[in-house]
Design a protein around this nucleic acid. Structure first.
Length: 276
DNA sequence: ACGAGCACCTGTGTGC
DNA sequence: TGCACACAGGTGCTCG
């Protein structure tokens, strides 16, 4: 479900609500959500500890605790992390409950594909997806030079490169389609074929799409809600994603959907022509 | 190095 | 109405 903008929106809200809170009790309702350590150890090691910071890397949320352990959460497709004052309206798919000294933190997940870890800060690189995460849009590490080098080395399709978290941390299927639509690049384009001005356009598009996604509170189709349980607004601003059959905002041609890199892919066949 | 296929799960929308 | 099937904001594995 959530990509970088959605996770960042959740982080910002949870940071306000959770920083300084103490965990008084943990209830793991579905033990297989916990990848490390065991569910029992997970409960015991978090209990009685304070949350000192709420951070994010790519699509991972990192809740730092006062004893040097970090609660790492990846929401995958349908995970939700919500703060609420009490349990009067508990999510039907609640999988883990954190009872705090003030309020509750709920991990809910419909498809249960999400992953949670508790790991010492110094060993965080044992989570392979985190260790190999590439630079994020809007960060200093994501420079034009970096993107240019990335593109020159990759032999596959541009879409699969942008989805690769080792290349770039935080983009997912929605925002990749949006970046390519804004930059007017066909998803099957061979990255090395892009000229300097197209690379610059793509670079700006990636940053702009992510910036707007955050500004609009993320994109909600069905499951995504922010830390407060509310939907995002960016679905109202999309250029391509889920707009198949509707007119392109730039030229009026009909947006099409087909499979690229194993994912449903939406683009304008006129603006985003494949260069040969 | 890359793509394809599958696995992990559950819910929803579609067509018959 | 019921059933079967495709598909879904992600990632990691195997295989060729």
């Amino acid at each position: 479900m959530p990509e970088l903008p959605e996770v960042e929106i959740i982080r910002r809200y949870l940071e306000q609500k959770l920083t300084g809170r103490k965990v008084e009790r943990v209830e793991v309702l579905l033990p297989r959500m916990i990848k490390w350590p065991t569910a029992g150890e997970f409960e015991a090691m978090i209990t009685h500890h304070k949350i000192t910071a709420v951070k994010r890397r790519g699509k991972y949320l990192l809740l730092e605790l006062d004893h040097g352990q970090i609660l790492v959460v990846h929401l995958r497709m349908t995970g939700r992390l919500k703060y609420q004052e009490d349990l009067t309206s508990l999510d039907q798919y609640a999988r883990i409950l954190f009872h705090l000294d003030e309020g509750k933190l709920i991990y809910a997940d419909t498809r249960t594909l999400g992953t949670l870890y508790l790991i010492p800060k110094s060993e965080i690189s044992r989570i392979s997806g985190l260790a190999t995460l590439g630079p994020e849009p809007l960060s200093p590490e994501f420079s034009l030079t970096y993107l240019r080098q990335l593109l020159s080395r990759h032999k596959g399709k541009i879409k699969s490169l942008l989805l690769d978290q080792k290349a770039l941390g935080g983009l997912g299927n929605i925002y990749v389609d949006e970046c390519l639509a804004l930059a007017k690049i066909h998803p099957c384009t061979c990255p090395a074929q892009l000229n300097d001005s197209e690379v610059q356009t793509l670079y700006d598009a990636i940053n702009e799409v992510i910036r707007q996604g955050i500004e609009h509170g993320g994109t909600t189709f069905r499951d995504y809600v922010n830390g407060e349980g509310k939907k995002g607004n960016h679905q109202n601003y999309l250029l391509a994603y889920s707009r198949q059959g509707q007119p392109c905002q730039f030229c009026g041609a009909i947006i099409i959907k087909e499979e690229v890199a194993g994912r449903g892919t939406h683009y304008c066949p006129v603006c985003q022509k494949l260069k040969k």
